[in-house]
Design a protein around this nucleic acid. Structure first.
Length: 642
DNA sequence: CGAAAAACTTAGTATTTAGACT
DNA sequence: AGTCTAAATACTAAGTTTTTCG
């Protein structure tokens, strides 16, 4: 049920213009405010020092923010508690403030339980109720989720304002737990055309400002109270203004491809420059190019977590090894990057780079800047002089995209007709990029739960192992000689050997075994379904009725569906196996593929690859991704080269 | 100019949804 | 029909780059 009238902006001729004017006409309905606070029922009590205590409305609301997070790790952190308590006290009445002086005496448990119950209840609602809410939400999206941008109905990204709550910084953020205030109309700046129908503030309220700035792309802005930074409501990635920008980004990266050899020659030469700044710039650029590090802007001290990028690296973030594990000139990186994600890497570097690093760290403390003569703006100014539009982050885009293209070329086997093995190659190429960019995620936590259920299934696994692995034959032979107790012991022993051999984890092994079970089952299902289809067919031949025909059709459909599921399972299993038996088992399950796919990989590479091997684009891109990359999907054929 | 603010992109995690499984 | 899981989507923090300002 796709609307067929979607605007194909990439088909228009005047796409490339860049005059700074972002729109000629802009009309929208403004933001959707967070729902007002609903006071707690009387029966749900906050307790202080063991005694129930009724709070003023405002203090109660802030209290619930904490209560809702009671079981979260945040509430065990000192900064979080300190910041919360400080801000909470600011909204208390005088009396409340005089009583509540110690967070340790506060009991939020009942309130926490109340909210947990509410989510349970929400989950347990009837189908009709859920449907009703869904429809209400759709109506809201219809009204507020779109705008008129130069005569086209465009989707808005985030039209709901962020609700109040406690700030959840990432990593060791000094402001974690501070109160993020409710946004009111008086905080809001509206941006729209002069000749449009401007959004109306809620009754009794006024906007902070209504402006008509067609040089910017945002519709609504406000200043958040934690870091005092502006936030915006902007369009969805499927919109023209975002899509064109994205397209342009990849064109700049492709342009870098034609210049990169020269730029590399330049920084190689500069490694020996007599000017310190130029030497530092050369080394920094070498890191940015080779390791896909981020630029690394300076950050205000103590305002946010202590993280760095290339230009802001400190001496303590690298260790220099003239020799390590038999290799020369190794730099060992260990620092926290964006989102406090750890970057750890041991890299062999050029002798001259190594020499320079020794020079840069001489007579410095660990806390001193490695590149003390360099910052992102001088670096970017230099890059811009080499090529129009070139900045530090273009190297990440370029290296990510070129890596995908090369890996696809290398890993795709043109003779293998199997779609699932193609997808596996694609995912591996994607993974190579994610590793390069250090895109991580928390390891899925069901891993340890699966451990728990281990014992119940051990016999089943034994059987599957017996039929699936190379140890099978031995196992079967042995099994005939042994009782089941011995058999199980033997299986565990084999498992242990596998673990040792591949230095993998038990959980990974067990997951693979689980997948084998699923695959076997699916294969059995397909055999059954084929049987059924066969008998339905002969039924139909004997009795050519409409009902029989439909039945036969349905059976055929079922086979198709099952076969698709089987392919999916096989992909999963092979993918998993390559993870488990590959070299970097531990990190790999913590590699996130999504970020690079969405932000770094020229979608035209993927589209061209899909066309070349007749892979449906749906196998690589989900709905959201197809919307975002609609321009690329429409634009290129298999001959596209990044 | 250089610092600060504004604008815009990139990021991981939390929540929701879909669909497979029992 | 309910339960479980993985994928999709929502959310918003945290970066980079561009623009403004003193």
């Amino acid at each position: 049920e796709e609307p067929e009238d979607k605007w194909k902006w990439w088909e228009e001729k005047d796409n490339a213009k860049d005059s700074g004017v972002k729109w000629k006409f802009l009309e929208h309905k403004g933001p959707v405010f967070a729902p007002p606070y609903e006071p707690l029922p009387k029966t749900v009590q906050f307790k202080y020092d063991g005694k129930p205590m009724k709070l003023s409305l405002e203090a109660e609301e802030v209290m619930t923010f904490y209560a809702k997070m009671l079981d979260h790790e945040y509430t065990s952190k000192n900064d979080f508690n300190k910041n919360f308590f400080g801000d909470w006290r600011k909204v208390m009445t005088k009396e409340e403030k005089s009583i509540i002086s110690d967070l340790g005496k506060c009991n939020f448990r009942d309130v926490c339980t109340y909210f947990q119950q509410k989510t349970e209840e929400r989950k347990a609602r009837s189908k009709a109720e859920k449907l009703e809410e869904k429809q209400k939400n759709e109506a809201l999206v219809e009204e507020f989720g779109f705008c008129d941008w130069d005569g086209h109905r465009e989707k808005i990204g985030n039209f709901r304002l962020e609700p109040p709550g406690l700030f959840r910084g990432r990593g060791n953020h000094p402001k974690m737990g501070k109160l993020k205030k409710r946004i009111i109309p008086e905080d809001i700046t509206i941006n729209c055309s002069k000749n449009s129908v401007a959004p109306k503030p809620p009754p009794g309220h006024k906007w902070k400002e209504v402006r008509h700035d067609n040089q910017v792309t945002w519709l609504v802005s406000w200043t958040e109270n934690i870091q005092n930074q502006n936030k915006y409501i902007m369009l969805n990635p499927s919109s023209r203004v975002k899509g064109e920008k994205d397209w342009q980004k990849y064109e700049i990266a492709r342009n870098l491809k034609t210049k990169v050899d020269r730029i590399r020659e330049d920084y190689m030469r500069d490694l020996k420059s007599s000017e310190m700044m130029i030497r530092q710039r050369a080394v920094a650029l070498y890191f940015i190019d080779k390791l896909a590090l981020r630029a690394g802007n300076e950050k205000e001290d103590g305002e946010s977590a202590d993280t760095v990028g290339c230009c802001s690296l400190r001496c303590e973030h690298i260790k220099l090894h003239k020799q390590l594990d038999g290799k020369d000139f190794i730099v060992e990186f260990d620092f926290l990057g964006k989102d406090s994600i750890r970057y750890y890497n041991k890299v062999p570097v050029l002798k001259q780079v190594f020499k320079n690093l020794v020079l840069f760290t001489e007579n410095k403390e660990g806390g001193d800047d490695l590149f003390d003569r360099l910052n992102t703006s001088t670096l970017n100014k230099y890059l811009n002089s080499l090529m129009e539009g070139l900045t530090a982050k273009v190297f990440r885009t370029y290296n990510a995209s070129i890596t995908l293209q090369n890996q696809l070329l290398e890993l795709t086997d043109p003779d293998d007709e199997n779609v699932s093995s193609k997808i596996l190659s694609y995912n591996r190429a994607n993974r190579a990029v994610a590793v390069l960019c250090n895109h991580q995620r928390a390891a899925p936590k069901n891993f340890s739960e699966q451990m728990g259920r281990m014992n119940d299934k051990v016999e089943l696994w034994s059987a599957v192992l017996a039929s699936k692995t190379q140890y099978l034959i031995r196992l079967r032979n042995v099994a005939s000689l042994m009782g089941s107790f011995l058999l199980i012991t033997y299986v565990w022993f084999m498992l242990y050997l596998i673990l040792l051999r591949f230095s993998t984890t038990l959980v990974d092994m067990l997951q693979m075994v689980g997948m084998c079970i699923k695959i076997e089952k699916k294969q059995a299902d397909i055999r059954d379904a084929k049987q059924e289809a066969k008998s339905a067919k002969s039924d139909y031949k004997h009795n050519k009725s409409e009902g029989k025909r439909k039945l036969y059709e349905a059976k055929k459909k079922k086979i198709e569906r099952l076969q698709e599921q089987l392919i999916k399972l096989e992909v999963q299993a092979t993918d998993k196996a390559s993870l488990v038996f590959g070299k970097t088992t531990e990190e790999n399950k913590e590699i996130a593929l999504g970020t690079s796919k969405l932000n770094y990989l020229d979608p035209r590479i993927t589209v061209a690859w899909c066309k070349k091997y007749a892979i449906p684009i749906e196998k690589c891109y989900n709905k959201t991704q197809r919307d975002k990359f609609a321009w690329a999907i429409a634009m290129v054929d298999e001959s596209y080269v990044f």
